[in-house]
């Protein structure tokens, strides 16, 4: 088994503004979002980062996608360090979260071409990818409609195809099914399985247990910015219900604090 993503002791501390400080009841003015997080994901697998709200999942994925920098430790994607070779990392990943918005003014077709060029694809490559992906997600029917006029689900599909336009080896999804109806969510999870079938490595974050059980080969449970349990799905659950296992781990982790 080839390892594809490795996080080593990643630490991330946010400085809080006066307003945030009040909300978080913090006296130090700092929020430790990741407290020495380490994990390893392997090639050709789907890795699930599972954790409650505020555990640090989004923060970890943003560090992997080089959008933000770690304060300590390092992470490697396909052998490249996110701190030292951010451009190389970005070229090998597809990152998707609902926070990455597309400009309302443009059409899916225009944006697909624009991002294709930013990824260094030729016009022929872009056209070929478009021919593959647009029909696959039914984007053909609204390819020339401005993004601002699309529904949430349609926008999500467009974001999805744009994030994988360059056929990346590693795919990072933050809350892949958040805000989607069952049908669209199903399209997305089916597609993730298909990508896995093509030998891609995928890491997703979620707080939905059923999604992990259905989709993931390996799972890491994050609580309070630390890895509370990690392993293959079978190793972590030991054959029991994931939700029950999670509560036990959670009680133990919070009890420790």
């Amino acid at each position: 088994m080839q390892e594809i993503i490795r996080a080593e002791n990643v630490r991330k501390v946010f400085r809080l503004s006066a307003k945030q400080r009040k909300l978080e009841h913090s006296t130090t003015g700092k929020k430790v979002a990741l407290d020495g997080l380490s994990f390893t994901a392997y090639e050709g697998e789907i890795y699930g980062l599972l954790g409650p709200n505020g555990a640090g999942k989004t923060t970890m994925l943003r560090i992997l996608s080089t959008l933000i920098r770690a304060d300590g430790g390092d992470a490697y994607v396909a052998g490249k360090s996110v701190t030292r070779e951010p451009e190389a990392v970005r070229a090998s990943i597809g990152f998707l979260t609902s926070e990455l918005k597309l400009e309302d003014f443009f059409t899916p077709a225009y944006l697909f071409e624009f991002f294709g060029r930013l990824h260094g694809l030729s016009a022929e490559q872009i056209a070929a990818r478009k021919g593959e992906l647009f029909p696959r997600f039914g984007i053909d029917s609204f390819a020339e409609v401005k993004v601002g006029d699309l529904s949430t689900g349609m926008k999500q599909k467009v974001s999805l195809v744009i994030s994988i336009i360059h056929d990346p080896a590693v795919i990072i999804f933050d809350e892949p099914t958040n805000g989607l109806d069952v049908l669209t969510a199903r399209v997305v999870t089916d597609f993730l399985r298909e990508l896995k079938g093509q030998g891609k490595s995928i890491i997703v974050s979620t707080h939905i247990f059923s999604l992990v059980e259905k989709l993931c080969d390996r799972v890491g449970i994050i609580i309070g910015g630390k890895m509370a349990a990690e392993g293959t799905l079978a190793e972590v659950t030991g054959g029991e219900d994931l939700e029950e296992v999670f509560f036990e781990i959670y009680k133990k982790a919070v009890g420790e604090v």
Partner: peptide
């Protein structure tokens, strides 16, 4: 505007410098 609407982050995850 791009920052406010969250579209700049989409650009920043491409390999562009």
């Amino acid at each position: 505007g791009e920052k406010e609407r969250g579209t700049i982050a989409t650009l920043l995850v491409t390999p562009i410098r």
